[in-house]
Computed example of a mutant assay.
Amino acid sequence: MTEQQYMVRIIGIDPGSRFTGVGIIDTAQQKIQHVHHETIKCGNGDFPDRLRIIFEGVNELIKQFRPNEMAIENVFMAKNAGSALKLGQARGAAICATVVNDIVVHEYAAKAVKQAVVGKGGADKKQVQYMIRLLLNLKENVQEDAADGLAIAICHANNRWAQNRLVSNNTSNWRKF
């Protein structure tokens, strides 16, 4: 059985200090199936309390759904340095909740995620929501942050598939020489 033939559960996280989007999918070969999505609402309280909500929320989802891998959006350069720092800390809380559960973390740029799901790196949130609904055959729209979490998970699933395909092709070609 090759790596492509077994199911992998991926948790995708779109970090934010007020709302953190989470999407969980199962993938095997080129098939993707929706498992769960939600938005962790951190509120307007003290910032350390919001980080704790992210950490505990992600940790609880990991214990409940037992993903094999995690994908998260990279920090982008925001116009406001304070916002970028808070986003980085929110990412850190989610990453810590993941690594304490011995799950490998993969990072993707926002443009790469949009490219993988919509087909263009400059897509807006409504386009991402629409494509998530189509790709996962969902009956209702998914909240923006949760849709972004699902998009990150799908981006990683596509990347896994492409890497596995490349490795198997390169190995078989290498053996021909």
Rank of each mutant, 00 (worst) to 15 (best):
R160M: 13
Q127N: 02
I32P: 00
I152L: 03
D102I: 04
L150G: 09
I11S: 08
A93F: 10
L135M: 15
V167T: 15
F65H: 15
K41G: 01
A151Q: 07
A78C: 11
G149L: 04
V118G: 02
V22M: 04
S168R: 14
E56T: 08
T171M: 14
N159A: 12
Q4W: 11
A84M: 15
W174A: 15
Q33N: 05
V104T: 14
Q127I: 02
N101R: 13
H156M: 06
A110D: 03
A116V: 05
K120F: 05
G92H: 10
I11C: 09
I72M: 10
N44Q: 06
K126L: 10
G121I: 03
V75K: 11
T39W: 00
Q127A: 10
H37S: 12
H37G: 00
I53E: 03
T2L: 15
G88A: 14
Q4R: 13
Y130T: 08
E73L: 09
A78D: 14
F65I: 08
L138N: 08
A112M: 02
I10Y: 07
T27D: 00
T171L: 15
G43C: 04
P48M: 01
N59T: 10
N137E: 13
A112K: 08
I11N: 06
M77K: 13
E69Q: 13
I95E: 12
V142E: 04
L138S: 09
N141C: 01
V58R: 01
Q115C: 00
T171C: 10
K176F: 12
R66M: 11
F55C: 04
K126H: 09
V117P: 02
K86D: 12
N159P: 01
H106M: 07
N137F: 05
V128C: 05
S17K: 03
D124F: 03
I32M: 05
E60W: 00
M131V: 06
A81H: 14
